[in-house]
């Protein structure tokens, strides 16, 4: 019925338009199935409630840490690639945490080394994210989004001589929620993991044997100076 009412050129235009729509739909489906989901982790981190340790600590964030991101390429057409950018949130959380955990925090001008001019501090902390893993319900069939991170810490003198080296893990999860996108859930899991990292650092820092020994030595040095 509609065909009989359509003139020749109109039919051609309609066919072209139909092909264009089909092409667009195909492209959308293709792009959607192979798209990259990007999460720039954003969150609020409360200051820790504790008595600051009497230490003037320097902190050096390496470029890899400042711009830390995790990329996971899609395994198939049905999956999406993921980029999780945690750099800004890492710096925000660690700066907030360290500022309240120690009496004084100083950002270093350069990586501690014998010929590097830096402010005078008791020691310099260098945090690194060694590994980040994530899991979403599409991977595990469990209705939970998870982020797991392994940190590596170096505590060094201003000359770069090692005082202590240790690793620490952090974990965050969030259940699926109605009307919550994958990106929002991964962000929330990352924020929970960062909070966990802060909690783990605060409760384990003084228990690292080399750190405990260094803190004791620092205390003895100060007592000796005070008694002179």
């Amino acid at each position: 019925m509609s065909d009989s009412m359509t003139s020749g050129p109109d039919r051609q235009t309609a066919r072209r338009s139909g092909l264009a729509r089909a092409g667009l739909l195909f492209c959308l489906v293709f792009v959607a199935s192979c798209s990259t989901k990007e999460v720039i982790v954003v969150g609020n981190f409360p200051p820790p409630l504790m008595e600051p340790l009497p230490v003037t600590l320097g902190v050096w964030y390496e470029p890899d840490f400042l711009g830390h991101e995790f990329f996971d390429e899609a395994k198939g057409r049905a999956e999406s690639s993921w980029i999780v950018k945690t750099g800004d949130a890492q710096v925000q959380m660690w700066s907030q945490l360290l500022n309240n955990m120690f009496t004084r925090i100083t950002k270093m001008d350069g990586k501690p080394a014998p010929d590097q001019m830096n402010p005078i501090v008791d020691a310099v902390l260098i945090p690194r994210v060694d590994e980040l893993q994530y899991a979403i319900p599409a991977h595990t069939n469990v209705k939970v989004y998870e982020i797991w991170m392994r940190y590596a810490f170096e505590l060094v003198t201003t000359n770069g001589e090692p005082i202590a080296e240790w690793t620490m893990t952090a974990y965050g999860k969030t259940p699926t929620a109605f009307l919550q996108s994958d990106e929002a859930a991964v962000n929330l899991a990352a924020v929970v993991a960062l909070r966990d990292a802060g909690a783990h650092f605060i409760t384990s820092f003084q228990k690292v044997p080399a750190v405990a020994a260094w803190l004791e030595e620092l205390q003895q040095q100060r007592a000796a100076v005070a008694s002179r």
Binding site: P46, P47, P48, L49, R195, D196, G198, A199, H200, I202, T203
Partner: peptide, 9 residues
Amino acid sequence: ALYPWFEPR
């Protein structure tokens, strides 16, 4: 208000 003393860990 009591971070980090009431985190899951």
